[in-house]
């Protein structure tokens, strides 16, 4: 079937099988490989993107189900060479090691900050509880989100 999805502001059209998972559509068609996958059971959160501004596990959605919706991936966070404060926060606070969970974490916490610009540590921990990080023990991710909250308007450089 022919599917068109708005990904990062551009319409991506491709003929795919109905069973094509959104994560594969994103990675294969526009080649946006920043969105990862780490499990088969919606437990790890490596595949989180935003659909209409809300975090979504893209391994547990059919591409066909997303037609007519707006998908945003990690590649869209940086605009005109300017990093999003959440990206800068992850760098400042050493919130990533192997980097594999990072795109999902970024899209989850960006959505959190959009909804709640000044989250508490407990709110941050709850927001990322559907994403597994094997490297950081989450502590620096929490700090990075706080950094981004406190530097929402900061001039960040690429």
């Amino acid at each position: 079937m022919n599917i068109s999805i708005n990904i990062n502001g551009e319409t991506v059209t491709r003929d795919v099988e109905p069973r094509t998972l959104l994560v594969h559509f994103i990675r294969d068609t526009p080649g946006l490989t920043g969105t990862h996958w780490g499990c088969d059971t919606s437990n790890c959160g490596a595949c989180v993107v935003q659909m209409d501004g809300q975090p979504l596990k893209s391994c547990t959605a059919l591409a066909a189900m997303c037609e007519g919706h707006e998908i945003r991936t990690v590649e869209a966070l940086e605009v005109d060479g300017k990093l999003d404060p959440i990206q800068q926060g992850f760098h400042e606070k050493h919130a990533l090691q192997c980097g594999f969970c990072t795109p999902g974490m970024l899209m989850t916490t960006r959505a959190l900050l959009d909804e709640n610009p000044d989250p508490t540590e407990a709110e941050i921990r709850m927001a990322i509880s559907g994403s597994i990080c094997r490297c950081t023990g989450y502590q620096n991710i929490v700090a990075a989100v706080r950094w981004a909250a406190e530097n929402a308007e900061a001039e960040v450089q690429s």
Partner: peptide, 9 residues
């Protein structure tokens, strides 16, 4: 129930 991202759907 599950986690916040799953709860969105």
């Amino acid at each position: 129930i599950a986690d916040p991202v799953v709860r969105n759907r």
